[in-house]
Write a protein that binds this DNA or RNA. Structure first.
Length: 303
DNA sequence: TCCCAGGTAGATC
DNA sequence: GATCTACATGGG
């Protein structure tokens, strides 16, 4: 991986194990806007980033080398050896082989804790495009203007202090539905500092999860997403409808409780549970594994 | 019209 | 404890 400046832009060359589209479009973040193939505007870390991938090169438009080195390398998790992760997982069994091959370029983003918490509270019982809509509304109304690309304006996700100003009613008006009281509770706890990132420094996965679950509307699944995507707990293994279906299809062959899947994942994948989950989620959701469409396809094939 | 969505809280047994 | 259901909103 080599970083060079090119006028106003900064380039990273010799990328390995990275694909921008796969990383953004696999449901871990919600502030990305597609401009073209492998070209996006991303809002994160209080910044707006116009970025494009061209084979093994990443182009950061209007971005300094300092920002790439200090912010974006970490955000995209580019300073981690994913080859080692893949080898570890493939050594466990061959079930992950097609997922890792197909989704070779997925990385787990290092996002801001408060944004992940709010975003995944919204995510419950909602589809990804709709989650994006609500997060966008919150940002437009309570975030700061960051700039525009092609005439489209972009706003930061509000910081914890600003989140504390949003009433339950206001959350409802932004179409968060029944999640409004949950969002209000989380925002108040973030603003007051009752819940803050530093608290997790001395907590293991289990204790961290319990702390998160003290927030209304945060259960096991949302807590695990926050641990994995916002707090760096790479062993967290969120189980949603997709992961449940996928795990049942490739490991169990029958309907299996979340508790049982959780135990299995913890024993089987260990410290790399989060990566396994992400490869499986991206791959399985694309292939619609375990859904009606998938089952129909299989029965059609038998004919 | 009905069903489902990266679930969770509260009720009921 | 394990299951059942209501919860807003939007799209297929």
């Amino acid at each position: 991986m080599k970083i060079t400046e090119n006028g106003k832009n900064t380039l990273i060359n010799e990328l390995k194990d990275f694909d921008l589209e796969q990383t953004l479009e696999c449901g871990q973040c919600f502030r990305f806007y597609k401009l073209d193939k492998e070209e996006y505007v991303i809002v994160a870390k209080n910044k707006m980033l116009h970025i494009k991938q061209d084979e093994n090169q990443l182009i950061f438009y209007n971005t300094s080398k300092e920002d790439v080195e200090n912010i974006w390398i970490n955000y995209f998790d580019l300073d981690r050896d994913y080859n080692e992760i893949k080898e570890y997982l493939l050594k466990k069994d061959n079930k992950l082989e097609s997922a890792i091959k197909e989704k070779y370029g997925v990385r787990i983003l290092n996002q801001d804790f408060h944004e992940v918490l709010i975003s995944f509270i919204i995510s419950q019982n909602k589809q990804i495009p709709q989650i994006k809509q609500v997060v966008k509304r919150i940002s437009e109304q309570y975030g700061e203007y960051l700039g525009d690309v092609n005439g489209e304006k972009y706003y930061s996700f509000p910081n914890p202090e600003k989140l504390g100003e949003i009433t339950e009613e206001a959350f409802r008006e932004m179409k968060s539905g029944f999640r409004a009281p949950y969002l209000y509770d989380a925002s108040q706890k973030l603003a007051s500092g009752e819940i803050n990132e530093e608290l997790f420094a001395n907590l293991n996965e289990e204790d961290g999860r319990e702390l998160l679950k003290s927030i209304k509307g945060v259960g096991d699944k949302v807590a695990n997403c926050v641990l994995l995507f916002g707090l760096g707990y790479r062993n967290a293994f969120p189980i949603d409808v997709w992961i449940k279906r996928i795990m049942e299809a490739i490991y169990f062959g029958k309907e299996t409780s979340k508790e049982e899947i959780q135990k299995f994942a913890s024993n089987h994948y260990g410290e790399y549970g989060g990566y396994a989950q992400q490869y499986l989620f991206c791959f399985g959701r694309d292939a619609k594994i375990g859904t009606k469409t998938d089952k129909k396809k299989k029965s059609d094939n038998k004919k």
